[in-house]
């Protein structure tokens, strides 16, 4: 080893995987029964849970419908948009 060789020291860098929210936003067109049906189809939610989330969208303007890893959040957002629901993802607080 020469004097000028670089010594590489390993450093542990632990980054916590921040959860992401999938958010459905209200719109004036999609029928309430349809939004419930989409949430059941995409997430496999029972009807009561899907209907509750749909009512949150309807009354509050938005609802966090799923929280988890970013890749799956993006996948679900794409699925919801393919069913014509206005959707975004955001870092969970």
């Amino acid at each position: 080893m020469s004097d000028s060789d670089t010594l590489i020291l390993p450093r542990e860098d632990v980054a916590l995987d921040v959860p992401w929210n999938v958010v459905v936003h209200d719109d004036p067109v999609n029928l309430m029964g349809y939004v419930t049906w989409v949430l059941m189809k995409v997430f496999g939610y029972p009807e009561a849970k899907a209907a509750k989330l749909m009512m949150e969208v309807h009354t509050l303007g938005r609802s966090v419908v799923w929280t988890g890893g970013r890749e799956r959040a993006e996948f679900f957002a794409q699925q919801l948009q393919s069913h014509q629901l206005t959707t975004s993802i955001e870092k969970s607080a």
Partner: peptide, 12 residues
Amino acid sequence: LAGSLGAAAEAS
């Protein structure tokens, strides 16, 4: 339509 559905993602 496709663009409008993800408009909320613009800010993120």
